[in-house]
Amino acid sequence: MFLEQIVNGIAIGMSYALVAVGYSMVFGVLRLINFSHSAVFTFGAFAVWVGVEMLHLNVFLAILAGVAITGVLGIGLNKMALEPLRKKGETGMPALITTIGMSYIIINVLTIVFGSQMRRFPALFNWGQIHIFGAAIGWQQVMIALACLVLLVTLSLIVNKTKSGLAMRAVQQQPTAAAINGINVNHVITFVFFLGAASAAIAGTLVAAYYQYVRPSFGDVIGLKAFAAAVLGGIGSLPGAVLGGLIVGVVESLAVFALGSTYIDLVAYLVMFAVLLIRPTGLLGRKGIKKV
């Protein structure tokens, strides 16, 4: 029972990490928390759901299409809502309120189109269980954790080993200097939004498969928990996001084990309050990042 809860925690924690990375990457280049990230996450899950359940596509194809569409949504968000604000030099509160507004529009359009009720989402890896040390562990959980791991490694390779990743890191450190060196800052930001939205879509699919349902309000709480994870690990840090996600996921699962499922959501919120009160830079965060 204990081991099963740990594995559950790792699986869901890795999904949080995948969402948290999206927050972190956008924060890295824009010093802005993308409040609409949780709405994008829900949109991604719905995009895949439409592919699988309504258009009866092959699961793999549906995920690919859903992720691509969500990535485009991410680019659209940046181009339509945030770029004009940056051109006017209005960052800070106007940008924050814009992302809140965009998330609200996405969620409510989803509610209008699909209704607010739960929709059954196919379990993607329904391959039964494996038995280790007397514990029955679902393939579902193992595969979700592995899929997240593969994606996180891919993302960190993109950031650390490719030319676009180098440009991203340059913009992160000093946008003006990056621009002087011939980096198109707007392209980099667009690319970051695409990556963030695409990884949110994959995370959305995996979490929906884990719980086997999807509905428009589905991302609200998970977005908040992923943010808690990003904050705990240290915003702007990729390994931090993974560490934070794992801690939040496992602590939450153990809390179910110890306290029952009633107050499960409170755990992540309390963690977030505690971290931001005691150590706002998070566990692996660098000092000197001004939290604007």
């Binding site: 409040f35 919120y269 939290k291």
Partner: peptide, 18 residues
Amino acid sequence: MRVSGTYLAILTLAFFYL
């Protein structure tokens, strides 16, 4: 006390959910 901006917005949202 120690946060502002979006951090604060998200904490107040967490406060509401709490």
